[in-house]
């Protein structure tokens, strides 16, 4: 048991690849993430003031001029940086790197709400609970019991659906096997209608993500900052292949 645990932990390094060539920008991942992770909705006024709580946002820029104009989509979520700018600035270790999953954790019950991490995140991937957001009963019935419901004053962000990772690992360990590629899927990848999001273990060179990361279309967002993101984008756009 413990042997298995140690081995797995050394073997885990979760990563994501988003293929922008087939990402249609449809926002299903955004909704899926919100429904899985108990993300509260904030209403029109708060959304208008940039206080939406979406952990995943699809950035849309316009390229070109009419009539050759076309939107350029890029789903933006916590990049789970290997060298994360958010981590060293937290005064209480509420955001830190996990030893097992090798992702950035946000420990809600430790967070004191300095919001320093959010300022320091070059991806603006973090959202803050400005208020206690009410989900009127009985709508709170659908809240996921595996994910803490955050109260006001704490920071939150994409967790790579760590609850699913933990569950998957426990399941594999109960069945006495190792986690296989594709066992664990975060909500966004699971929903994505075009399967543009792939999730897997980067430390396994044979996993799908590892193969895709080696693609010549692969790039990482703001790589020059040295953040070592775990999310890789595959370049898309109309210039490719057509």
């Amino acid at each position: 048991m413990t042997e298995l645990l140690a081995k797995e932990a050394h073997d885990e390094k979760w990563g994501m690849v988003i293929d922008l060539d087939i990402c249609s920008g449809c926002q299903a991942c955004v909704t899926a993430c919100s429904m899985e992770n108990n993300i509260p909705f904030v209403g029109e006024d708060e959304m208008a003031y940039g206080r939406g709580m979406q952990w995943m946002r699809i950035r849309r820029y316009w390229e070109g001029e009419y009539p050759e104009v076309t939107p350029d989509y890029q789903p933006m979520l916590c990049q789970q940086c290997g060298s994360a700018p958010c981590e060293p600035v937290c005064p209480v270790f509420a955001t830190l790197h996990s030893e097992v999953e090798k992702i950035n954790l946000q420990v809600y019950n430790r967070c004191i709400g300095t919001r320093y991490c959010a300022n320091n995140c070059p991806y603006h991937a973090r959202t803050f609970n400005w208020f206690d957001y009410e989900i009127p009963a009985p709508m709170n019935s659908y809240l996921n019991p595996d994910v803490t419901v955050r109260r006001r004053g704490v920071m939150e962000k994409c967790t790579f659906c760590v609850q699913r990772i933990v569950k998957g690992r426990q399941q594999a360990s109960a069945e006495g096997r190792e986690i296989e590629d594709g066992d664990i899927t975060p909500a966004c990848a699971q929903a994505c209608p075009t399967d543009a999001i792939t999730f897997g273990n980067l430390s396994d060179p044979e996993s799908r993500v590892s193969k895709m990361v080696r693609s010549d279309r692969a790039y990482k967002e703001l790589e020059n900052l040295g953040t070592e993101p775990r999310v890789t984008y595959l370049k898309g756009g109309k210039s490719y292949g057509g």
Partner: peptide, 15 residues
């Protein structure tokens, strides 16, 4: 009592 939201800070201006 209400939350930091009564201040005008927002994403990305957290301070």
């Amino acid at each position: 009592a209400t939350g930091m939201g009564v201040a005008g800070i927002r994403r990305p201006v957290f301070w």
